[in-house]
Design a protein around this nucleic acid. Structure first.
Length: 284
DNA sequence: ATCTTCGCCTGCCAGC
DNA sequence: TGCTGGCAGGCGAAGA
């Protein structure tokens, strides 16, 4: 499920339990997710206190007192669950019986003991450990584009990053080197809000269109983050399949339904192998 | 170099 | 009911 707003929601749910807590035990139920776990993963984590849990684009980044950073990516189906005193509610996950639980962190924090489990049916997620001082230069982050909700992303920076590109605007925005953290849903939603066609060549975005697009990207992400935050109390309830922002989609998964502005049917097309949803009347 | 397709996995849903 | 095909918000590698 995770694009930037969902990862931020997960971060906000995990932070109260993980920040300041000591990792007393790490259990791996398999040697890999999408990629193998890094060398000495368990021994580099056990005994460490997690100082901060941050987010960069769609990545969770835990800063350890050793100076190393624990990188966690949820892929498409990764989910964290919290059990114990730090958990909101009283959630009990059948960890032993769930074949999709791959990682278990035992934590000792200010509020007591807690267990954080990572489940991922498709195993498109991954975890990594980056040595101290190498976070920004690591393979994950070295070529990553600006963080969309920060001041790094301006109309000028976006326009320059799209300049010269002949790829469709939709495909360019999915490229994490252009802007970091957007996925298929929020690209579709942002293009609709900006009134820009997903088929337009990226390089045709000049200053005025870049301004609209940046505004749309920031707005839709911010609204989604806030919607995720509003359901945070359910973070550890049920199966994590919260429905927060989806009822507010203007175009995503609405093929054939009426555009909320002009009532034309929303169209679906495939670009770079991914579904694009848009209004052919409102988006030019 | 840039852009597109493919592969990784499992679960779910519509249609037969 | 069971089977099949298509689809899914991720990424990086390989191909064009």
């Amino acid at each position: 499920m995770p694009e930037l707003p969902e990862v931020e929601t997960v971060r906000a749910g995990l932070a109260p339990v993980m920040e300041g807590a000591r990792i007393t035990s790490v259990t791996l139920n398999r040697p890999d997710l999408r990629f193998p776990f890094p060398e000495k993963f368990i021994s580099r984590l056990e005994g460490q206190r997690m100082i901060r849990l941050m987010r960069r684009a769609k990545y969770l980044v835990g800063e350890l007192e050793s100076g190393e950073h624990l990188i966690m990516h949820l892929g498409m189906t990764g989910r964290f669950s919290i059990e114990g005193k730090g958990a909101p509610g009283n959630y009990h996950h059948d960890v032993a019986g769930d074949r999709h639980v791959h990682v278990i962190f035992e934590l000792e924090g200010p509020k007591g003991l807690a267990r954080v489990t990572y489940a991922d049916p498709r195993r498109f997620g991954f975890m990594d450990l980056v040595p101290a001082g190498e976070l920004a230069s690591s393979a994950h982050f070295a070529r990553m584009g600006p963080e969309p909700l920060s001041d790094e992303l301006t109309a000028d920076t976006l326009r320059l990053r799209l300049a010269g590109k002949s790829a469709p605007l939709k495909a360019a925005l999915l490229d994490q080197r252009v802007v970091a953290g957007l996925g298929n849903i929020y690209v579709c939603e942002a293009l609709y809000r900006a009134g820009l066609s997903p088929r337009r060549m990226a390089r045709t975005v000049g200053p005025a269109r870049a301004e609209k697009l940046v505004r749309a990207i920031k707005d839709v992400l911010q609204e989604a983050v806030e919607a995720g935050g509003s359901t945070l109390r359910d973070f550890a309830a049920a199966d994590g399949a919260m429905g927060y922002f989806q009822h507010r989609f203007d175009v995503y998964d609405r093929a054939g339904e009426a555009c909320r502005k002009c009532a034309s049917p929303i169209q679906r097309l495939v670009q770079s192998g991914r579904s694009t949803f848009f209004c052919g009347t409102c988006q030019r």
